[in-house]
């Protein structure tokens, strides 16, 4: 029978065997430490999200001690003819403070949705161009430039839209307000198009060459291969890029603060000034007195913003997973 020590003879022996023993013990400890280190790092993101969540809720929930839940929707008051009206307004510093979030939410959607639509069209098209049509040399040159676009400070884009874009669209379309949701959404698109383009390109490129060959081998031309094989196969990746773009549009602050006009109009007209939730927090948080109704109201906006993006991402994730499981498009 062969025992352990006999087997060990065939292994390469270090010069000092007692050292090797301590090394192996130490290696086990090292292994554990490394594992713990990486696990902690992996969990850190989760921990921070939970902490942010707790802080946001702790502060925001106090709003209910100051302002009623319904007051965040509308304020009831009598008009000149003694008829009860519901007022959807955000005037937190007025004598009768009005805290309706409705104009802020519509303002956010009115900038984010057009921006996402514009960015989807141009971003996905750019992604397809980069991945499927551009010559490799062109792509190598173009992709970093497109990605560089996303790195422009948003305050610069906001300034450009405020100073040049708004005037351009004012002359072109003659909108009701010079600074409006449309101008802001064009500014947002400048940030989101590169995100969608870059992620779409990644998603399309990850589709195996085999599938392209199968398609071409069946007599499909380039456009048919892109539209019937590559895009559907990359559906989840492309959708994820669009959702990420929308999330960015909802969360973006500087561009909308500078270019959307910042008047909390309750409107569905993209050519009117609007005020977004993010811009409201950014503009008012610095001036609000801590502990006031207004202060807690701003935190409550934070909660709403958080919940909106959370559920957007969650529902999108569910839809994509379902699609992926069914594997049919």
């Amino acid at each position: 029978m062969i025992n352990q020590s006999q087997l060990a003879q065939f292994e390469i022996q270090p010069e000092n065997s007692s050292l090797s023993k301590s090394v192996s013990k130490f290696a086990g400890l090292k292994e554990t430490l490394i594992k713990v280190f990486f696990t902690l790092n992996g969990l850190a993101a989760l921990i921070f999200i939970i902490l942010i969540f707790i802080f946001l809720f702790k502060e925001g929930i106090k709003a209910f001690g100051h302002i009623g839940l319904m007051d965040f929707l509308y304020l009831q008051r009598l008009d000149a003819n003694n008829i009860l009206l519901r007022v959807y307004e955000w005037y937190p510093t007025s004598e009768i403070a009005r805290y309706s979030l409705v104009p802020l939410i519509t303002g956010t959607l009115l900038t984010a949705i057009p921006a996402t639509i514009i960015s989807t069209i141009f971003g996905v098209a750019a992604g397809i161009y980069l991945s499927e049509i551009a010559h490799p040399n062109t792509k190598e040159f173009l992709k970093p430039i497109i990605e560089l676009f996303a790195a422009i400070p948003t305050v610069v884009i906001g300034f450009i839209m405020l100073a040049i874009g708004a005037t351009f669209f004012n002359d072109l379309l003659n909108p009701l307000n010079r600074l409006n949701a449309f101008v802001a959404s064009i500014g947002l698109s400048m940030v989101i198009i590169p995100i969608i383009a870059s992620l779409t390109e990644d998603a399309l490129r990850s589709i195996p060459v085999d599938l392209r060959m199968a398609s071409y081998g069946m007599g499909a031309n380039k456009w048919q291969t892109i539209s019937r094989v590559i895009l559907p196969a990359a559906f989840s990746g492309v959708s994820a890029s669009i959702i990420l773009g929308f999330g960015r549009a909802v969360g973006e602050t500087m561009i909308v603060l500078m270019a959307a006009g910042n008047a909390s109009n309750l409107t569905t007209d993209v050519f009117r000034s609007v005020r977004t939730m993010t811009a409201t927090i950014a503009a008012e948080m610095g001036e609000v007195s801590q502990g006031s109704d207004h202060y807690y109201a701003l935190f409550f906006i934070g909660i709403v913003l958080f919940i909106i993006t959370f559920f957007l991402n969650l529902s999108a994730e569910i839809i994509i997973n379902k699609m992926r499981k069914k594997n049919t498009f």
Binding site: D210, L211, G217, G219
Partner: peptide
């Protein structure tokens, strides 16, 4: 495109589309 419709091809690894 027409030629490839007349001359079909089966590849080394099955390359079915992620469809039904």
């Amino acid at each position: 495109v027409n030629l490839r419709k007349r001359v079909g091809m089966v590849f080394q690894k099955s390359n079915l589309f992620p469809k039904s």
